[in-house]
Amino acid sequence: MAVASESQDGGASPRLPWQQALLDDVFLLFMAGLVVPTLIYIVWGLLELSNVPLLKP
């Protein structure tokens, strides 16, 4: 498991760039992938639909 020791062994290697740490955070990615489309697509869409007025001829 050479890969694991390299990435875990923070003391020996210099600090990793924050961009790399961010892109490696699979859990954060998972949450973002659920929250962002739920808010922008589903919640916004349903809000708009619930605000459609009744037809008054």
Partner: peptide, 22 residues
Amino acid sequence: GEVGTLPLFSFALLVAAILAVF
């Protein structure tokens, strides 16, 4: 700690899986 950064191909599959959950 068994894997560090995913290979790009596995990362793409992870992205596909996240999209699949939504």
